[in-house]
Structure formats: structure tokens, C-alpha cells
Design a protein around this nucleic acid. Sequence first.
DNA 1: TTTAAATGTTACCTAAATGTTATTTGTTAT
DNA 2: ATAACAAATAACATTTAGGTAACATTTAAA
Lengths: 227, 227
Amino acid sequence: MSKRDIKILLVDDEPDILEIVGYNLSLEGYQIITATNGVEAVKKAKKEKPQLIILDVMMPEMDGIEACEHIRNIPDLKETIITFLTARSEDYSQVAGFDAGADDYITKPIKPKVLVSKVKALLRRLKEEEVSESIVKIGQLIIDHEAYKVILKGKEIVLPRKEFELLSLLSSKPGKVFKRDEILDKVWGNEVVVGGRTIDVHIRKLREKIGDDSFKTVKGVGYKFVS
Amino acid sequence: MSKRDIKILLVDDEPDILEIVGYNLSLEGYQIITATNGVEAVKKAKKEKPQLIILDVMMPEMDGIEACEHIRNIPDLKETIITFLTARSEDYSQVAGFDAGADDYITKPIKPKVLVSKVKALLRRLKEEEVSESIVKIGQLIIDHEAYKVILKGKEIVLPRKEFELLSLLSSKPGKVFKRDEILDKVWGNEVVVGGRTIDVHIRKLREKIGDDSFKTVKGVGYKFVS
DNA sequence: TTTAAATGTTACCTAAATGTTATTTGTTAT
DNA sequence: ATAACAAATAACATTTAGGTAACATTTAAA
């Protein structure tokens, strides 16, 4: 799962906060959804199923604690990480927050850099669980995601990042044809626009290193990895 | 390691508790260090490196849960046992506490005999792990976490704190690539924001002292330790 | 068979990432 | 206070991944 597949629900009654926090997180490539009160938050959480929810404690309609409890009761959102926004002084709300099922809290005033790194740290936990199969074996090929390296017939091959990611993608479903669009989206990110020969060049480099016949071209469509 | 060499950090905002618990444990021969709030606790933990920390959940300045998380992020204190003190009713803190990396909890009101035997039981576990955990050998390299020193090919090398922590982190999973974000989070802590060249400079110093080829750069990702 | 579109190939360029060193700033012990 | 060291930064150097352009080759449909 890449960054741009991650949705973050941001809930605060102050538009300024939504603005600044949302801006900083979207710069990092996350999808941002916002809500200005607890009721709206629960509704949007249910619909969008974000991976992370940042909840202000003090809000009209329904406060953060109550919203958190509601959200925790939605089966689909069991794995969602919830963190509170709280003024430094209100340490009471932190206790109540954990009680309601929060995973963490962030204190105001918010420093964007701190916030971003905290969010990254929280999401890392999610990511680590996801890539549980960090070592994948396909025929003669061993792909070690943790060490960012590839072992082919016992020989270690170090691949540059994009090549590694491309191989990683194609080999995640051997035999499946990945469309060029799909490859661009997953490896390059669809905000980035690259020239028409970029994928080919990378495929060529992989063919050089891994073996010509591991990568089959399907003309007019894309590429597939075959073991 | 004899009882006399074991340090226990006791953290509670009520002097009465510190007094009675401290007295009972010191009778058993343990060294007792005390703190009355989370901030002080983290500071003393960092400095004294106790084997066991008994943390009250409810405290001013920084609560036990937060303190626990901070402590868990200090590489040197990875193996430290942390247990919470909690009122019987507050069972939420137990959940949040385990989440934050606690090993056990003790409920108030405290019965000295129960406490002492619980402490003994916890420290027994430490003793079993001690040999394998506090001294790590990787190839020509021996890392002694307790003494804060490193032995390379029989020669002792004294590393400054950050360098030691960085080495400690990287060597905890040889071969694994640690992302720059992750390194910042684990070694510097994610409240601190440091400049973009800080990690590199420390890596360079390690390369100077430990050996150039022990640290591999993975461009665009991070660094890994290889034996 | 033609031929236009898609893909392959190569060499080259550059921005971004990392390396390096000197200097400033912070900390600790005496 | 100050010496001694640690840690961070700034400024500059170096490296390389990754992208592109230009051209070659292949493929499949007409």
C-alpha cells in the first residue's frame, strides 16, 4: 500500500486547523478527508474507512471522546488508528481518550513537522503488519523487502529503488499482466508524469539483471512476470 | 549480577507510595531511584538505566503511559522491564499500558509482600535473558549495551551516545534497511526536528570507527548494517 | 506486404540524495 | 569559569538513480 492509498480523517471544529494540518499531510501524499464535528466524523469514518483518524477532543455536536467510542464500535474500523488532538493542559482528556480506545494523542499547539513525523510513525506500524511477507520466493528468485535486495540463484543482486519496486510489483502476482497505467500508478505515483519510454527502460534493466525471459511484454497492454 | 547491582526506578507523585514501596524493596537489597513525574522519570531512566521501572499511570507533567512510550524509544532501555501502578478500577490503563510497551501491572492498593514477590518474579525473567540480550555479537563486533561500549576485533571503541544508539539500532537487525524516518524516530525521537545532514554525519563517524563497509547506503531509502 | 504504433536500446544529462569538512552550539565535569 | 567533548548545522563536493531523447526494432492489423 503506497502513501496515496492511505486515507486520513481529520476532525476539528476550527477550519484553520483543518487547513494547516490537512495541507501538511497532503504534501506528504496522503488522502485527506475532513469533518468539523463528531457526528460528521462518525459518518465519514463509516463511509471512507480511513486508516488513521485525528480527532479533536473539544467539539460541538459530539465531542471527540464520544465520537471515538462510536467509531470503535464499528466492526470495519477495528484496525483504524485513532489519535486525539488535545491542548497540553487538558491531561484529563488524555486519560479519558485512552479509555475510549484511542491509540495516541497529539498536543496543541501543533508543530507541522512533529505532527507529520508522528503520523508517519503511527502508520509505520500499520505498514509493518502489512508487509509481513517481507521475504518472497519465486522459483530461483528471492525478494527480500526488508533488506531491499534480491537473490537470484544464490547470487545477491542490488537493485536501485525503482527497479526494486517494479520487480516487487510484477512479482507480487506472477503471471498477471500489469497495465502500463497500473505500473505508473503503483511505482511512480499518478501525480508524477514521466515520459513514454521510462517503464521500458526500467524493464530492460531488470531483464539485464534478472533474466530476459522473466519479463514478458504483452503488446498494447503491459508486462508480466513469469517464473 | 547480584541484587545490589539492580536498580529500580520508582515513579509516583505521592511521596507516601515512594516511601513505603522504596523501603520494602531496599530491604531486599535493591538500589532504589525515585521520580515524581513522567518527565523526571524519563530523564532518570536515561541516565541511570534501571533494570526495572515501576510507573504510576496518573501523574502530573507527563503521565505514565506517555513516559513509558518515551522510555521504550530509548534503544538502551529496550530490555528494561516496565510495570504500571494502577488503581484497580482503571482497567483501561492496563490496555493502554500494554499498548505502550509495558510488561506487567500492579494494582493499588499495594500490599508490600505481593509487590516484592512480583518484583522478584519480574527480575528473574531478566536474569534469564540477560546473558543473551545485553551483549550482542555480530561478526567481529561486540556491542555491550550495559557498558555502552563496543569491541571491534578485540579492540575497545568508545562511542558517544548518539553514535552508540545509531549503531545499536542498525545492528539490532543486520541486513534490514532502516528508513531515515525510522532512524530519526528511534534515535532522535519524533518530537525533535533535526537538519537533513545529521544522520549522514553520524553514519560517517561510525564508518570511520567501525569500518566503511559495515554500513550500506540504500539511496532514497536509508541505511543498513551488514556483517 | 505494408506500415503505423508500440516497444526496445543506448548514451547521456541532471536533480536529488548522500558524503564531507569545518564551524557553531550545547553539555558536562572539574 | 573553562576545558573537553558531543552534537548539530551549514556550506560545499560528490555520486548516482532515474529520466529523457533519439533512434532501432518488432509486432499486429489492414
